[in-house]
Design a protein around this nucleic acid. Sequence first.
RNA 1: GCAGGGGUGGCUGAGGUGGUCAAAGGCGCCGGGCUUAAGAUCCGGUCCCGUAUGGGUUCGUGGGUUCGUAUCCCACCCCCUGCACCA
Length: 949
Amino acid sequence: MSRKTVGVKMAKEYSPVDEVAWQRKWDEAQIFECGIREDRPKFYCLEMYPYPSGKMHMGHVRNYSIGDAVARYKRMMGFDVLYPIGFDSFGMPAENAAMDEGGHPYDITERNMASITQQIKRMGFSYDWKRQLKSHDPRYYKWNQYYFTKFYEQGLAYQEYAPVNWCEQCETVLANEQVKAGRCWRCNGPVVQKEMEQWFLNINKYAQELVDGLDTIAFPENVKSLQRDWLGRSEGAEITFEVEGKDLNIEVFTTRPDTLFGVTFVTLAPEHPMAEQLVKGTEYESAWQDLYDEVSVMAEFDRIRDMKKKKGVPSGCFALHPLTGERIPIWIGNFVIASYGTGAVMAVPGHDERDFDFAKAFDIPIRRVLVMDEGGDADAPLDSAETAHGWMVNSPLEGFDGLYGEEAMKAVTNALDLKGSGKETINWKIRPWLISRQRYWGTPIPMIHCEDCGVVAVPEHDLPVELPTDVAFGQGNPLETSEAFLNVDCPDCGKAARRETDTMDTFVDSSWYFMRFTDALNDEKCFDADVANHFMNVDFYCGGIEHAQMHLIYARFYTKALRDLGLHSIDEPFSELLCQGMVNSPAPWCDSCQLTLSVAHTGSPCPHCGSELSERSAKMSKSLGNTVSPGLMIEQYGADTVRLFILFAANPTAGMDWSDLGIASNHRVMIQMASMPDKLLGWGKSPSSMDTWMLARLKQRCAEFQQAMDVFDLRRAVEISHYDLIKDINWYTRRGGENAELGVQILKSWTHLVSVSTPHLAEEWWQQIGMDGLVSGSEFVHLPKMSDEEQSALDNETVLRSVLDSARRIKDVAERHLDGPAQSATIVVSPPWKRIMAVEALDFIEQGGSVKNFVGHLSQMEIAQGERKGEIIGYWGKKMLPQVFKWDDASRALLRGSLDEVIALTNGSAFIAQELGLESVQVVLGESAEDLTERAGGSMPLAPAIVYA
RNA sequence: GCAGGGGUGGCUGAGGUGGUCAAAGGCGCCGGGCUUAAGAUCCGGUCCCGUAUGGGUUCGUGGGUUCGUAUCCCACCCCCUGCACCA
């Protein structure tokens, strides 16, 4: 047997160029087009569809490499896989580009889509391109309008005059969720408050369902917690305070009705409508006006920061305590937010920190109505607010003192209920979704304003309301510059009327596109209910964590709202969500300024403090200049290499660092992989005992691969397909395996595993091994179950390898003892009584016995009788006990099985001798007649003693 | 402050239902083999000590539980993400 590869051909050059050819073949064969196939289970794999900026970036590549691997895997496992892509093509960048460089958003968008499409296609992702959709297509946004008119009929969509978030740079309003730290989520410009009439969708109607649904879907914990945060459900009571001497009621919301008797004042938000009413014409009016002016111009974010300083003015009026009738001063305070709850709070300074601070600042009484220990001192002074649950004390009414927590709250709420001045209620932080945008490049809101009829929805047969082209970009809403668009007859009375010029938030587009994909070519309907029901839910949804916030909640809301329109019967759109991590790359970092700098500063001192810069990994971004162009990488290494690197460099959910060394080394792996078919097919025709082992190993690897893919552990899967199997094959040939027939068999299975991450290479293989068609379109053929013979081949080899490893480890030390190179070795297999003891101990413990009690059991055993009893029992405590727990499941099975260590090792002794450079290796059973070493004491089952000589 | 997620060997990164963990894999580094040579592949090594398969010290810090803990409990420190005077 020659150790050298017999391969006649040179290792095949690994050429990325061939990739395009394979992509063309996939297209021609139409293997990625999906239709309902009743004969197999469906799998809907989806990535968040991209906004068509002109270029594909590494984030896209990572996102789609993950999704494509899943789609390909499911396809090869026999699923009917729906894996579509489209473009989120409405939105501000195109409109801004139109303003900057002239031209029309439509042309800019189409141009960008064409270029990014080409780049995406070059990666060879297995999309069903036929279903491609784009949100700026009237055939798509028609349905946005249709839903809107239906929502309007139901009252889910409505118009309201309200203070809204206005982004000066974008010249449009924003939903609350779209304001991040007082700034616009998109442009990062400042956001101010403005009173305007705007369109809203009442997402609150679904708030409870949105919370409950989180328990039924596999979203990452942080995303769930984020969504819960936002929805902000809090249970409590709404309580009515009458205003003394006026026909007015103040409604407050509280989560702590149990502190009601501790109320010493009531606070209104400065913008609360009643605030002005109460102070109008009094000495307090100007103070209120000042506070109002100060607070209302501030963006919410600045204002909240400012709230740390408690500011307030008295109103001069009093409210009446709903249970005791006590007179309670009404204050107006900066710390109350008009838009949360009722915009008014009952202030309990003894048990709320903000109220405490406020009371201290304005010298308002502080009253204890809870104690924190049962039976605690009801008169103890309060140095700070005690906000935990406690036992009620000092209640002016009978029947409350001594009640705790929930019970206390219930009691107070019940009392309020009886008097008709309060009830249990649930309050939500989430507010209706403001969907109006004063921009052009979005779906026109299909409404008409008629002087006589008011607001009228555009009738269904007039949809879509298409975007006009005769508009001027520059300032304000471009739609207002189109006379043809503006002027319309009222659908009800026929008189001249005016069209609504607001367009919809682009998050509307992305809130249902996944449903459209299921039936993307339907011209009659948004989608057929049966078809949507068949393919939904999305089984695997992959995208960036940045959308955990808005998109994922709006999409869930829309799914429920459309369900209630009778369009389908799905409750949740996404069964499983995977948020891929960021793609990072090194950038200069200043340790003293704690600042990441642009790569322009590489090699120079910190521009701020002059100190030397180190390097740190940071999210790839234009501003840091640390981006890596996917196009260049594909050109240099090929799409497969890029995919392999991206999948192997980190777990999908973890952040990954781009590394030039890393991709180069993955490229070497690809080169090596490319030579595998030649190598395996070039083997001789010499079946050997190693064939059984190799086949068993292949089965094992395939099983491991499936396990990894089934939990989307793509890193592990790639490791098996591109690293572990190569090692296995190396071992096989090293042990003398060389059977080309087996080689073909290996390749047939292996090619499938390879195709999941590096499909182009897999097609090359498929062709080389002479298979028909495309591996991407063929199903994985499951291998027969592992036979006993195969299992024992694995076992024998495991024992051999572990003995070889430990023999190698001690060789150096041994040779120091021998004062020269070792010539031979004797492998002393542990005497049978040790294995008997081990198995007995394992059984004993697995049946629930305590380790400590095993000695007693042992002393009854046959092996422990006789004159060696003391020695054997001592061996248990000192050696065997710790070892018993170190055996893994496989080793335990080995111990209990029929494996004969002497035979296994004797069969491998020539190999061991060769590997260790010894003249001979002898295997003996410890304490037997053949064993002349007297070193059996150091042996352990599965770990023989090795004696060099 | 609150919520969620983290802190592992030169780097990266698995594991984390207590014993399979001195701790996978990758990268880097070192040695060997191959080669005219380089590169690649292949083999071995890579916490410390060690006159024989062993010992010591390690998985943010400090305690605790246990025959035993990277893995469980408590406290603390640090990092990331989000929310934040939300009544």
